[in-house]
């Protein structure tokens, strides 16, 4: 079983922050700086989860989520939106677009990994059973 997490994020600092927190907890982080590359890497690595920023160059997070959902082979991989879009309706709109989870930026570094883990730990637990 892969230990990979895919982060699709164009902001270098935010990507570094998440990668740092996750790698500290033993995950392998694969990063993509735009949506197209993110989709390709997801198909290539079949990660445990995909952390997806919404504001991305060229192809935004909504389009990426929709594209990811089209691929049967990616079925069951949670897509967790990590975004600065915190206005009314953003959360609902993102979940409706196919994201499994929603984490508002700024993230809480104390609880971030725990929050992430609850999405795929459950999946892993399902699989283990």
């Amino acid at each position: 079983m892969s230990n990979d997490l895919l982060i699709i994020e164009d902001n270098e600092q935010n990507l570094y922050l998440m990668r740092f927190l996750l790698e500290k907890k033993g995950f392998t982080v694969i990063a993509a700086e735009n949506g197209r590359a993110g989709i390709d890497k997801a198909l290539e690595h079949k990660p445990l989860a995909i952390l997806l920023d919404i504001q991305l160059p060229e192809m935004d997070g909504y389009a990426v989520a929709a594209e990811l959902l089209k691929h049967k082979e990616l079925e069951g991989i949670p897509i967790i939106a990590v975004t600065s879009y915190a206005m009314v309706g953003d959360r609902e709109r993102i979940l409706a677009a196919g994201a499994t989870g929603y984490i508002e930026k700024p993230i809480n570094p104390d609880t971030f990994v725990t929050e992430i883990k609850q999405y795929f730990r459950e999946n892993t637990a399902d699989r283990e059973e």
């Binding site: 935010n14 922050l17 998440m18 600065s84 879009y85 930026k105 700024p106 809480n108 971030f112």
Partner: peptide, 15 residues
């Protein structure tokens, strides 16, 4: 909101 959160994310995260 978006533009303020993005740098805050780094500040709060790294702190």
């Amino acid at each position: 909101s978006h533009e303020l959160r993005t740098p805050l994310n780094s500040i709060i995260g790294f702190t």
